[in-house]
Design a protein around this nucleic acid. Structure first.
Lengths: 340, 340
DNA sequence: CTGTTAGCGCGTTCAC
DNA sequence: GTGAACGCGCTAACAG
């Protein structure tokens, strides 16, 4: 049988209350007594039963998710996953709330964080807008003891406890190798469609992509990046225009707004053999993968990201370790054969 | 505040014990009383607190993992993941034991299952050898109420509650498309190295592979399958021998024992440009991917499989639902750029 | 500073 | 058939 608080109380010759004070690092214990108790804990190999403790405390984990108010499939999916997590809340003792902030607006995000730092959430997960002022507030909150996790997009050089998202440089590199290998000996130009170079994930994907292209596929030239603002209409216009260039043999779409890309491809490239790699599995990209308009999709699993953020925030709130491998968000590569 | 057993007892005008009998479907309650209680449960939206119940019962989940005694990196990794799970046992209330059986030996597996069915494990996870007699025992045990999960390799047409492994047909298809696309316009022959056609995962990978090859890459011909029994030595011999054929342009290794494959490739194919796809990320395949001996690795995350099997077995033991998306084992595709 | 006591939500004897 | 009472491992008043 596992030792309990009673056992260490007996072994240390003190009462339950004292053991509890030591366990929860509360004041009001002489250091001599404290050390007796700690010795007993070590000798008996005591492991605290978190479930019992939470039961006694009636504990719940108040968590806040801060999301950009963006109207694209990926964000809708992320929202849906959070709603699923809310459904599971009773069983997981979580109490989850979401807050929407204008996208790409550091000031708005900072305001929300300031507000939250006056409250008592035991954990915050946010899709970060990567700006110094956001980083500053986040760091201050971390120092004040708030567990903070970035979601999908990270905060450069911040103290956040964890990042629940994919390695975007690796994603860009992978896209480049896939495109290069699929094209084989063909030479030509590559069009790149991004959302905005103001977002860190997009910048990183581009960085990874261009470096592998330069190193390993010198026969392929990258055209100036098209910034579609993650908007299907803008993307459509830009891509349709670019496809006038007959030298293009491949396309890498590293942001959202793929509906516009797909439409442009179907209109303009019926007679061409273009190799296309895009990000995020949505109903649109899935259909395009199946009908061969897109050759491969790189994806991040929003469900995994949300569940991971919750596990990590709970663990941090309890001062516990996480299973690192379980919290690593994979870069999913989908061909038409391994779709979920 | 969430309703508790006290609330429904009060609402139904009965005592706690009666509520408990109804909740745990135990006899000794008149049907009138039972229905009163059930009505109260529904009306108050009662959700039982599993943690409190387990605390009261002092419950643990005795789980058994049955693994083949194979000496390859993948099985070593799987073992290591189970040991990690054993370390977490106190926190997860699990009590995990592993049993090794000779590989590819249905009779031995059946004997172990028979033995277990006389015991009281609340869940069994096994790397199944796909044979009718195994299926028969497993089905009987499922009917007797044992939660059973297959791990890595499934049991055709059985009643097992869940399969914690990748879709191997999809894996084979993905390998074929990757190989076909990487080879581009090149024509030639493809060598296939398997472990044994007695295990379902290998048969399925081959099936998926050959079908996509036939449908979409008619310029590539598949040579007769080499059965390396997942043994590095045997694999080395077979592959070294096969590479005497100068028409080979690609290799698909769908089993384990890749150390032998890699050695043969380095010895015999230094001067050739072979495209190679292999399964399972190990120290050996990882190194080979980095030095370009292998072009892509398809992988199943053993850690995910073990954690998933445990979650599912616990849920089944409690009659609870699982988060389907979380328990889906992805087919990981690794290029040298997205290694973990 | 330390100990006593009464729960948290549930399961399980026992009597009735 | 049904209910009262106690205990699971831990925390939180309140005494002392």
């Amino acid at each position: 049988m596992r030792p309990t608080v009673h056992d260490i109380a007996a072994a240390a010759g003190v009462s339950l209350a004292t053991v509890d004070r030591v366990l929860n690092q509360r004041p009001g214990v002489r250091s001599v007594t404290r050390e007796k108790v700690e010795a007993a804990i070590r000798e008996l190999g005591y492991i605290r039963d978190l479930a019992a403790a939470n039961l006694a405390k009636g504990r719940t984990y108040p968590l806040v998710f801060i999301l950009p108010a963006s109207d694209n499939s990926f964000m809708h999916g992320l929202n849906a996953e959070i709603r699923q997590a809310i459904v599971r809340s009773p069983a997981e003792r979580t109490d989850i709330r979401t807050i929407e902030v204008p996208a790409f607006d550091p000031a708005a995000l900072v305001a929300v964080l300031e507000e939250l730092s006056r409250g008592k959430p035991c954990g915050i997960a946010m899709v970060a807008t990567d700006a110094p002022e956001v980083c500053a507030v986040a760091d201050r909150m971390v120092r004040d003891g708030f567990p903070i996790v970035t979601l999908v997009s990270d905060l450069t050089g911040s103290l956040r406890h964890h990042y629940a998202g994919v390695d975007n440089i690796a994603a860009g590199r992978t896209a480049a190798r896939l495109l290069g290998r699929f094209l084989g000996p063909r030479k030509g130009e590559i069009a790149v469609l991004a959302g905005s170079m103001l977002v860190r994930d997009h910048r990183e994907r581009l960085e990874g992509f261009t470096s592998v292209m330069a190193e390993e596929f010198p026969g392929l030239a990258i055209l100036p990046v098209l910034e579609g603002r993650d908007d299907p209409e803008v993307a459509h216009m830009l891509v349709a225009d670019a496809l006038g260039n007959a030298g293009i043999v491949g396309v890498y779409s590293l942001g959202a707004g793929n509906r516009g890309l797909i439409r442009a491809l179907k209109e303009k490239a019926v007679d061409r053999t273009l190799t296309v790699i895009a990000h995020e599995l949505t109903v649109h990209t899935r259909a395009a993968l199946i009908d061969h308009t897109i050759d491969a999709i790189l994806n991040q699993d929003a469900g995994h990201e949300v569940r991971s953020a919750i596990r990590v925030l709970k663990a941090k709130a309890d001062g516990l370790a996480v299973i690192e491998a379980q919290e690593r968000i994979r870069l999913d590569i989908f061909l038409k054969d391994n779709l979920p």
